[in-house]
C-alpha cells in the first residue's frame, strides 16, 4: 500500500489527470474570481495549498478516530465544514501573530477559502472509497492528495491568470466580455488537460 509508486500515481493523478478545477469542477469561484492578476493568483494558490494540506490531514484524523469508531459517518458534512472553518480562523490568527509578512500576502485570501468547495471536496474525497483500490486513503496518501490537489489548483489558477492578463485588452464581442470569455479560456485549457487522462503510469503496477 505504501509503496512509492502509488504515491507518485496519486501525485500525478491529483495534479494533471483529475485536476481539481479543470476536470473535477471544484473551486471554480476563486478560479474565476482571483485570476485577473498573476500576483494575486500566486497568493491565492499558496493559501489553498496550505489550507488543503492542513484540512486533509485533520479531517482524516477526525474521520478515522472519531466518526468511524462511533458510527456517526453521516455527520461528516457538518463536522468537516466546521473543522475547516475553525482551522482557517486559527491559521489566520496564528499567522497574524507570528508571521506578519506571510499574513500580508495570504491574509485576504484565507476567509475566502472557508467556503471554497475544493477544500471540503478534498476532505470528502480522502475519506470516500478510492476508485482504484476500493479502500479509503491512508494518512500519508491523504496528506499527499491534499498537497498535490492544491498544487494542481494553483497550477490551473496561475495559467489562467497568465492568459487573462494577456487577453485583457483583446477585442472581444460585447456579450462575451468578462466571465464568458474566461469560461471559454478555461474550456480550452480543460481540453488540453483532457490529454492527460490517457496518461497511465506504470501500467504493470496500477492504473
Amino acid at each position: 500500500m505504501m509503496n512509492p509508486i502509488s504515491l507518485i500515481e496519486i501525485s500525478i493523478g491529483a495534479i494533471f489527470i483529475n485536476n481539481f478545477v479543470l476536470s473535477r469542477f471544484l473551486g471554480l469561484c476563486p478560479f474565476f474570481g482571483v485570476s485577473k492578476k498573476v500576483s494575486s493568483a500566486a497568493g491565492m494558490g499558496m493559501a489553498v495549498i496550505f489550507v488543503m494540506t492542513i484540512a486533509s490531514s485533520f479531517s482524516w484524523v477526525i474521520f478515522n478516530y472519531i466518526l468511524h469508531p462511533y458510527h456517526i459517518e453521516y455527520l461528516r458534512t457538518i463536522v468537516f465544514i466546521l473543522v475547516i472553518a475553525g482551522l482557517v480562523q486559527l491559521v489566520e490568527m496564528a499567522l497574524q501573530k507570528y508571521s506578519p509578512t506571510l499574513y500580508e500576502s495570504l491574509g485576504i485570501f484565507l476567509p475566502l477559502i472557508t467556503t471554497n468547495c475544493a477544500v471540503l471536496g478534498v476532505a470528502i474525497i480522502n475519506t470516500d472509497l478510492n476508485q482504484t483500490t476500493g479502500s479509503p486513503y491512508t494518512f500519508i496518501e491523504s496528506l499527499l492528495n491534499g498537497i498535490m490537489s492544491g498544487v494542481g489548483f494553483s497550477l490551473a489558477l496561475l495559467l489562467m491568470a497568465g492568459i487573462r492578463e494577456k487577453t485583457e485588452f483583446s477585442p472581444v464581442p460585447k456579450a462575451l466580455e468578462g466571465l464568458p470569455i474566461a469560461f471559454i479560456t478555461a474550456g480550452l485549457m480543460a481540453l488540453a488537460f483532457l490529454g492527460f487522462s490517457g496518461l497511465n503510469f506504470f501500467p504493470a503496477v496500477g492504473g
Binding site: 469542477f25 460585447k174 456579450a175 469560461f183 480543460a190
Partner: peptide
C-alpha cells in the same frame, strides 16, 4: 462526447451566458 466532459461544460455555460447578456 466532449460536451459531457469538462471542457464542454465550460463552453456551454460561456455561450448561454453570452446569449443572456446579448
Amino acid at each position: 462526447t466532449v460536451f459531457i466532459l469538462a471542457p464542454g461544460g465550460f463552453f456551454t455555460i460561456a455561450f448561454v451566458m453570452g446569449v443572456v447578456r446579448y
